[in-house]
Nucleic acid binder design. Structure first.
Length: 233
DNA sequence: GCGACAG
DNA sequence: ATCTTGTCGC
């Protein structure tokens, strides 16, 4: 898909923070996704000692969740992992991967936070602005804010709050497992984001777009194909 | 100053 | 995120 906008990722942590403070103003916390027929999941995998990062984007048909396209990209980074600045580590690889994606997903799931971030610009929101597409943050743990533990039943949810503001939802996607933290990335409402996460969860804690991206990212890092379409080769 | 801290 | 075998539980 076409990258709508970009900027240098070669920044110092201090410069990165300033950029986030500027871009946060462009995040849209609502929007009409229209009829959803195609979704995508994105994730990154790293190599132990090296600074190699493998990013992938997996497109799935909705609501059947059949994988229709998988692309990947590899980059080398010197930017360290700093809580709150994850995008400056994985962003370049993710942008490269999405640039190779032929599909035009109606909504994209990212591994990490949306607006539930110190400066309201987690990786899902940041990428949403650059791609100008609806995005959702699906994180496995919280970066900021607090949430009561959701009820034990799948589908239960409790708001993630920060200063009395609801910035996301802790969602029980599967009984007996820890909840996932869903937050708006860009151009979508929280309620719809939560509905989509639940609608795409199939027996595992993580929704399929995210889970498939996770699996493919590891597959690629270990030395598999870098792009595949359902038919093989 | 002391912890907390997406992936 | 990554390094790793077996093991407890549904």
């Amino acid at each position: 898909m076409k990258i709508q906008e970009t900027h240098s990722f070669d920044l110092t942590p201090a410069e990165a923070v300033r950029l986030q403070e500027v871009l946060r103003a462009r995040v849209r916390l609502s929007g009409d996704t229209g009829e959803i027929s195609l979704m995508a999941g994105a994730d990154a995998s790293y190599t132990k000692g090296s600074n190699e990062i493998y990013a992938v984007a997996v497109a799935l048909r909705y609501p059947d969740l059949t994988v229709v396209e998988r692309v990947s990209a590899r980059t080398t980074t010197s930017f360290p992992y700093i809580p709150g600045l994850l995008t400056f580590r994985e962003g370049p690889a993710l942008i490269e991967a999405f640039g190779r994606l032929q599909s035009e997903p109606d909504v994209i799931f990212f591994d990490g936070q949306g607006i539930a971030h110190p400066r309201g610009l987690g990786i899902a929101s940041h990428m949403g602005v650059l791609l100008d597409r609806p995005t959702v943050g699906v994180a496995k743990s919280l970066l900021v804010g607090t949430a009561a533990d959701p009820g034990p039943a799948r589908g239960s949810a409790s708001p993630v709050r920060r200063d009395g503001e609801t910035i996301g939802m802790a969602v029980r996607t599967k009984a007996g497992t820890k909840p996932v933290y869903v937050s708006v990335g860009h151009r979508i409402a929280l309620a719809q984001a939560v509905d989509l996460v639940l609608a795409t969860t199939r027996g595992y804690r993580l929704p399929e777009p995210t889970r498939q991206a996770h699996l493919f990212a590891n597959e690629v890092r270990r030395g598999g194909r870098q792009t595949t379409l359902p038919g093989g080769e």
